[in-house]
Simulated scan of single mutants.
Amino acid sequence: MSLQDTSQVSNCSAMSDVLNRIGDKWSVMVVGMLGRNGTLRFNELKRLINGVSQRMLTLTLRNLERDGLVTRTIYPEVPPRVEYSLTALGKTLEGPIGALWDWSAENHASIIEARSVYDARESAATAEEPRRIAYARG
């Protein structure tokens, strides 16, 4: 199926459904880290992904597993060892996510600069606007 024709409701729904999962920050980070590092344990992933909480990582891994992008392997040891890795479907995301990471790294400085220019322009425009004073009718 091709998602070229966005006038088709089913195509928009499919795109929305997929982007809701893989478009969030933590899913991109998890898939990226597993793609770059291979099989990882939970705490290894948590250390590699700056700022993710234990709860958010758990939810993200659960959702990625549900969607067939990540596999969870439990080893019957004491304490139990749990490892995560990309499935064959998850590995198909390595290229697009890798390209996104590379693009981000290459263009981050330009984006920061553009934000500064925009913010300065907005601050100047706000300062120049005449103040509107509301008078209460008595």
Rank of each mutant, 00 (worst) to 15 (best):
A109K: 12
T58D: 13
S116D: 11
L93S: 04
A109H: 05
V30N: 08
H108M: 09
P130M: 03
T92E: 13
V9Y: 05
K91N: 07
S16G: 14
S85K: 14
V31G: 03
N107R: 11
L59H: 15
L48S: 15
E44I: 05
W101L: 10
T6H: 02
R66L: 14
P76G: 03
L59D: 14
L89A: 12
W103P: 00
S85V: 00
T60P: 06
V117L: 09
S104Y: 13
S7K: 07
I49Y: 00
I22Q: 01
L34V: 02
A88I: 10
T60G: 09
T92F: 03
G98W: 05
A136S: 11
K46Q: 14
T39G: 02
R121P: 01
D102L: 12
S85H: 05
M1N: 07
S116N: 13
L64P: 13
V28K: 11
G51K: 15
P130V: 00
N63V: 09
D24W: 05
S53Q: 12
F42T: 08
Q54S: 12
G138F: 13
G90F: 01
G90L: 03
K46G: 00
I49E: 10
S7E: 07
V117R: 15
Y135R: 14
G23W: 05
S16A: 13
V82C: 08
D102I: 08
K46A: 11
Y118T: 03
N43V: 08
L3R: 08
R132H: 06
V70R: 10
L45S: 06
P96H: 02
K46V: 04
D5R: 07
N107G: 01
L19Q: 05
N37Q: 13
I133Y: 08
I97G: 02
K91P: 01
T60K: 15
Y75S: 12
A136N: 09
G95L: 10
V18H: 01
F42K: 11
A127N: 07
R72S: 09
R137P: 01
Y84K: 07
E106M: 10
S13G: 02
E65T: 13
Y118Q: 05
E106K: 15
L34T: 03
D67A: 13
R55L: 11
N43K: 14
S10F: 03
T87K: 07
T73G: 01
E129D: 06
P80C: 05
